Structure formats: C-alpha cells, structure tokens
Amino acid sequence: MIPYGRQDIQQADFDAVLEVLQSDFLTQGPVVPRFEQAVADKVGARHALAVNSATSALHIACLALGLGEGDWLWTSPITFVASANCGLYCGAKVDFVDIDPRTYNLCPQALVAKLEQAERVGRLPKVVVAVHLSGQPCDMQAIHALSQRYGFRIIEDASHAIGGKYQGEYIGNGRFSDITVFSFHPVKIITTAEGGMALTNDDTLARHMDLLRSHGVTRDPALMTHEADGPWYYQQVELGYNYRMTELQAALGLSQLERLDDYVARRNALAERYDAALAELPVTTPWQNPDSYSARHLYVIRLKLDQVTSTHRQIFERLREQSIGVNLHYIPVHTQPYYRQLGQGTGDYPEAERYYAEAISLPLYPTMSEAQQDKVVTALTQAVVGK
C-alpha cells in the first residue's frame, strides 16, 4: 500500500531521541525550550509553546484569547473537527464560513457577507480560526483587515503548514494573527510522534498559554498571590491542563526541523510532477495562490464528475483496491452528527459540500519515489477513464 502520508525517520532522529533517553530528563528538561526557540527563530515569532497535540494548542489558544460561554467561534467546514471543537471546549458556540472554490480555504468574501449579517443581529464572532488547508495559507491580509473592523481575534490553524510561506515570509510569524498553531503528527510536515505548538508575538498571551498547558501551576514569584513559603513552593493560579510536550518528542522535533525546508521543497516538486501528469485527466488539480508557497501537506484533486462515468466512491474504492492509500480531507464538519444536533445541516455551505462530493487526497510525502508516484497516476488514470 502506498499511504497518503508517511513520516521520515532517519539516523539523526534516532540519535537525538537516544541522547535524551540517556540523559537525566525525559520530560520538563532543556530540550523542549530548545525546540520552542528553534521553531520561533525559524518562522520569526516571539514566543513558541510546545504541547502534546495541535488540538491542545488550539484549546489553550482559545482560552488565552478569552473565548467562553456566550461567545462565537467561526471556522471553515473543510477541516478536521478539532478546528471547531476547540470552541466547544471553552463553552462557546461554533459556526462556519464557506470555502473559496479555488483554494478550499475559508473564503474572505463569504466571511464579509457573514460578518455583515452577524453585525446586524449582534452575533459577531470573538475568534475566527483560519485553517491553512493542505499547507496553503488563507488570505490572511484580508482576514486581518476584517478583524480590525469587526473586532474578532484570529487563530491560524497551520497544522498543515509549517515550512510554508505567505507573502514571502514563513507562516507562523504572526503578522496577521494573534496565535498560530502547528501540528507535528506523524503524517504532517515534520513530526514529534504526537505534538503541537502555539506561537504568538504577544507576551501576555504567551504567559497565559504557558500556565494553561501545565495545570495552571507556576513557580514564578511574579504570578503568585503571596511570597513563597520556601524553595519548594508553587501555586496553582488558574485551572490548567496537562498538555506538556516531553523531552523525547522535542528531541525528535529538533532533529526533524533541520530537514524542514528540504521536506517542503520535495513535496512541492512531487506536486508539480502530479500537476503535469494529471493535466489531461478529468480532474481539477490544486490551484496555488501566487502570494503563497504551500507546505504541500496534502495533494487534493477534485473529480470532474460530469466527465466520468463512475461515481466518486467507485473511483476511490478502485484506487484502494490497487493499493493506493487515498484519503478524503475532509468530511464537512457541519454535516457531522454532533454538529447537526447543534443546528448545522446539509445545504448550509454549498461550496464545502461540492468539494466533499468530488475530493480525493492522493499520496504525497517526501520519501515517495517517482516510481511510486507513477503507480498512483496509472491507477488513477485507469480508475477515471478505464485505460
């Protein structure tokens, strides 16, 4: 089976993790801060806070921005459920903004229309989560301009996008957002096995997220309510969570980070090769905004169903039968049973639903060989045109 994604573990990664195993610290040691600083330096952010998953990073980001009961979080329906669930974790309500038909990201024009309507009824969002689907950034300048007018805060869900660029600068620098979130899941651009990170340029937000990821406990005298009882003393100053990253994970991440640019370049080269190979097939290949350099976490095609005789499902299953590990990213969140119970329903976001009816994620990962890619192309050709 050729998987849709795969981690690349090299000897340098083994060596980095082994060094930690032989050290005095397996968790809460010096390697996590080194990893945080390395990522912050790489992307140009002031602060980076490593956690045990991107979902945890989204949660503490929402909490740090003050999202709570009575507030609204808006995001894209084409994302993994975590981008929306983080709002529910905080007691807020969640709504969606339809996608752009070319980038498949949150559509700025749809956002304008929804904001105008929400302002009339007094239901503006407190937080908008802009998801960089497949590693291509949203139109962050436009979204940021709207945040200045309507007063919402911005989280960039860049789980797919570390190593990508927007307007010539690395995603994560915080120029157009309050907080950016990265994922280090094994199929993402670099991995820490499981893990995530929240980045910000705001000192107050960084301090708050630091507390939230570790039980709300501090040893900082400046944050305590009274003088310490002794050198052993700590205080819980708010309700936090056990969201810390381990030294082992950080060591793997530091090692992987050395190859980040190479990984992204290889992904882009493979994507360009797909573009050429699929040009004559009845599929739509991913459009890339000239303002962006995608990290290319995913390569999503859309079937031109009016030009093929098979159904979406039949083509998907034929590829799986040929040991091509295709996937579908994502089922629109608003159609999930849990969200239907909250009032969402089919027909609410037509572009997202059209996307879902046509999309297939083809295998793409840095160690993928051209021979493997050719096998994918041959299988797809047979599946859609029967040749």
Rank of each mutant, 00 (worst) to 15 (best):
K93E: 14
V131N: 10
V300P: 13
H144E: 07
H59S: 08
A64T: 07
G29A: 02
V43S: 03
R267L: 15
S76F: 03
T335M: 13
D157M: 06
Q382P: 01
V308F: 04
S255L: 06
D24Q: 13
R320N: 09
S23G: 14
D275F: 00
E353H: 09
V181D: 01
Y234E: 14
L223D: 11
E317F: 11
A206K: 08
Q10N: 02
G164H: 02
K93C: 04
S134R: 10
G195V: 10
A383V: 02
Q314E: 15
A64H: 04
I301M: 08
K188V: 01
A48T: 07
T27P: 01
D261M: 04
D24K: 15
L380R: 11
Q22A: 14
Y170Q: 07
A113M: 10
T218I: 07
G343P: 09
R207T: 10
P282G: 08
A277T: 05
Y104T: 13
P77W: 10
A206N: 03
H297R: 12
I324G: 05
Y349N: 11
T180Q: 03
Q22S: 13
A110W: 02
K114P: 00
P108T: 06
Q373V: 00
P137D: 01
R153I: 02
W232P: 03
Y234A: 14
E69V: 12
D262A: 15
P108I: 04
A279V: 07
A92G: 11
P282V: 09
K114E: 15
R340T: 10
A61P: 03
N268K: 12
Q256G: 09
L124M: 11
K126F: 01
A251T: 05
